[in-house]
Design a protein around this nucleic acid. Structure first.
Lengths: 346, 346
DNA sequence: CTGAAAGCGCTTACAG
DNA sequence: CTGAAAGCGCTTACAG
């Protein structure tokens, strides 16, 4: 590999001049410039970024720490991050914490793995990244992460007890309100809930949204209409079975994610009932299969990709010391219209 | 941030000694060693990997170039890669080519984007990575990638016209043979095929596997039983509709992926027929929803995670100049038993 | 056994 | 206008 010294020798100038020409950091006679550029082409020279980083104390690398690259929203968030970073001239160092299996049904036990996280942070710090983005796979408030000094940080899909860090999340509670309201607008009154795992913040937030929508509409929620699942398919089947066997059956169900909603499809059909003819159903997450089930599911689409781009944007802003006016962003979701809601005549 | 110089001053030794102690590259009196280590703890010192990389001409970073992080097998492959790399002391620089939308239904047009790929390669080269893994999202043979000299390379989920590179793929054709054979073993004779997009290598390979299985069993395949789709849900519905309306209907269908298989579910049910009572069905890919449909789909599970770990292993072997005896690995798939096959009595 | 010094490939303050 | 030289933070061949 050619170095700057080689280019200097080949074009008969000093290494300083080569540097100035390549970085356009000093005006040069076009004759010198031409000589240098010719040598560059001839040798296929490209500058060593390691040496540059050492000298400049800036690597143009952003560390991305993901809870699990396989986690539902993560690839899309990373896609958004990579898009923005590339445009801004940054590269991405990815560290995968691999917490998917470990955290399953232990949504509130992230601090059991805080040491793993801090080790990842330390690796990023050692690699001299210019900034760090933490990508969660559940909406949560994170405590106890050791924030490296002088390295800006952003959280995607989560918030943290870190005054200096930015965060980008989505309107969890408000969207649960919205999708519940959708059922109310279709004149449903007996709306049951198949909730996610009670230990997860998502489940609590979506429950609040559901309750608020029901309250605002003056609709009563019998205690037994709130069925706690664990986000998994089987729990959707089981809890929906319970609902289907009640003496006063709900006419509509809000399942807190699409996986459990798919379980509800199964339970409803097993009871010889139709969707939406007998039971209306809505989900959450807009998973790929939500449009493949029969009938297509009405659900909530999360702004995952945008969470990534915005988090990257906030981080790059912090790196450049531009004042970041809104360090905590909460993005809206949108409702995807399926065919799983029946409008009841008044 | 403390540097080695600070540690040397604090512990009253030379920077050379500090380096030797920290890297355990020379025996030191335990007294000196203790002094150095105390200074390290006291200052929370950690070595600057950039400086180390420059000096050693080795970054301990592997570049991972993915066609699209959202592509179906990619997160799992990257998970496998990250696992092996972490254990081997390497970090991962991720570059996302974002080709998912661009390549949709243009499976054979990768060379339109060869410039994008080579730019990614160049970025990795400039970053002085110790090796590069290219992660494809379709099984294909890649030509025209500019291989940087002196940087080992591995391909995951694809092969390449590159004598020096390793590759890890899966038994595409053989698995199609296997899943077809599964239907034959259940005494099906009229087995139709809902094929993927004809421009994709996957579709051709799986077709060959299907044909071989039918041939070996002495079963005749009417031309009209081979229905070309495009991997998408709608094409599954459409092609299966055609099959369902034939005067001599097949008793079983092999859909080349789970998405199209799900489309077949819809078409079969729309014709008032049952799965597997009237029509047996198998898929390919073992997508998450394959077990959520009703009845669960019998399908083929790809060794995605393993493709990642093996590719990383081959690459790290090449970096360490260990002779890599099997540079081209083809991994087996496994069949996931659902309830979508009816065994026909002889 | 320990340390002074060269050098990895760049950038930039400084001198001519 | 151009270049010699210092220095970023390490490792290691070399000398004492």
């Amino acid at each position: 590999m050619a170095t700057m010294k080689d280019i200097a020798r080949l074009s008969g100038v000093s290494v300083a001049t080569v540097s100035y020409v390549l970085n356009k950091t000093r005006k040069m006679s076009s004759e010198v410039e031409e000589r240098v550029l010719r040598a560059v082409r001839q040798t296929n020279y490209c500058p060593n970024t390691i040496a540059k980083s050492l000298r400049m104390k800036k690597t143009n690398i952003v560390g991305v720490l993901v809870e699990d690259i396989r986690g539902m929203p993560v690839p899309e968030i990373v896609d958004g991050i990579s898009d923005f970073l590339e445009q801004s001239g940054y590269q991405m160092l990815l560290y995968n914490l691999r917490l998917l299996d470990k955290l399953l049904n232990q949504y509130d036990k992230l601090n059991k793995y805080i040491e793993d996280i801090n080790q990842g942070m330390r690796l990023m710090e050692n690699a001299c990244v210019d900034g760090i983005i933490y990508v969660a796979m559940h909406d949560r408030h994170i405590t106890g992460i050791r924030q490296p000094v002088n390295i800006p940080m952003a959280y995607a899909y989560a918030t943290a007890d870190n005054e200096e860090a930015c965060s980008v999340t989505y309107e969890n509670q408000r969207s649960a309100y919205g999708i519940t309201h959708k059922l109310i607008q279709a004149n449903h009154q007996r709306i049951a809930l198949v909730a996610g795992h009670p230990a997860s913040a998502d489940a609590r937030l979506r429950l609040e949204g559901y309750r608020a929508a029901m309250d605002d509409a003056g609709l009563y929620v019998p205690g037994e209409y709130i069925r706690w699942g664990d986000w998994g398919y089987e729990s959707g089947v089981e809890q929906c079975n319970v609902l289907m066997e009640m003496s006063v059956r709900p006419t509509a169900i809000f399942a807190m994610n699409d996986t459990m909603a798919t379980g509800c499809y199964r339970a409803i059909k097993n009871h010889g009932l139709g969707i939406p003819a007998d039971i209306s159903l809505v989900g959450f997450d807009n998973r790929e299969f939500a449009q493949l089930v029969n009938p297509p599911l009405t659900t909530v689409s999360l702004p995952n990709r945008q969470i990534g781009t915005r988090a990257a944007k906030l981080l790059v802003g912090s790196i450049h010391k531009r004042d970041v006016r809104t360090p905590n962003i909460v993005l809206p979701c949108s409702i995807i219209e399926g065919e799983s809601i029946r409008v009841i005549a008044k």
